[in-house]
Amino acid sequence: MDFLNAIILLGNYIIVPGLTYGSQLALGAIGVTLIYGVLRFANFAYGDLMAFGTMIVILSTGYLQSLGITFGFLPTALLALPMGIIATVILSLFFDKTVFKYYRDMKSEPVILIVVSIGVMFILNAIVRIVIGPGDVIFMDGARFIMKASEFKKMTGLNEGIALKSTQLITVITTIITCSILFYFLNKTKTGKSMRAYSDNEDLALLSGIDPTKIVIYTWVIVSILATIAGTLYGLDKSFKPFAYWNNLLPIFAATIVGGIGNPLGAFYGGFVIAFTEIGLTYAYKKFLVYLLPEQLEPSSLVQYISTDYKFAISFAILIVVLIYRPNGIFKGKVI
């Protein structure tokens, strides 16, 4: 019984939050990695692109609600996703045409593109804050919980319970669907393969008749879809706050590089690696050990590797270790 309680405890405090957070990072990291693989720069404006997409989703959600349209027990925001995606695609293509294309044609160094993406970051930052403000916005509606901890306890008769928020389940399921479609696209369709080919060997792709303009457009479209979905899922799960999106960019970068920059599957795993180490290292295992160990061995301290204050610092530290020892990421595999 104690053993079961211990497992449930971990499930509730590590596995469920880890899967949710990992999904959010994974979606973000795949976007960053696609931009890096095809357009060849680290896009510092990506966090704010997520914020922009989410903002449009929030505004559209408000509009839908004002029309009396909701999505039953699911959040209305899911219905509003297409609006957010369309707006983000348009925005991305606009910035590509007005800003990034010039440097791509000039074959500028990656550092210059990073600097330029910081300029875009500032602009998006301003747009989002001017339109919707810097404060918290909660736009989650529909059912809050799939299962409450108390219900779980009653059902099983255990001391510990698993609480499952509907946003958590939605996040994981949406991520699975999105990533399945994406990987099918990249690996099985002609367009997806041509994107990978372009990313792998630009000159040869040109010699094979692959049109770079189209590849760039596909990439921005896919990236915008991913950014909007990731941002919306994060906003549903926590709340929408522009600054939090900037902050999230850093663990997303970490996940991208851990997975091997330019490698979408690696980015997917990288998201979960970062999420689980962050949560696993900041969780206090005292209660867990109390269940498992005999009384005389029970720990007196919290048994926590590092305080939750350093949550982000962990992902940064992992990243730095990876950068030093495995700069190409810890996963071997196909690069986009």
Binding site: A42, P110, D309, A313, F316
Partner: peptide, 19 residues
């Protein structure tokens, strides 16, 4: 590190310092 990795690494390290 490569220049773009150095940019990201220093950004993240400064995050650690500030936290």
């Amino acid at each position: 590190l490569r220049s773009d990795y150095l940019a990201i690494a220093t950004l993240l390290i400064s995050g650690i310092i500030v936290s």
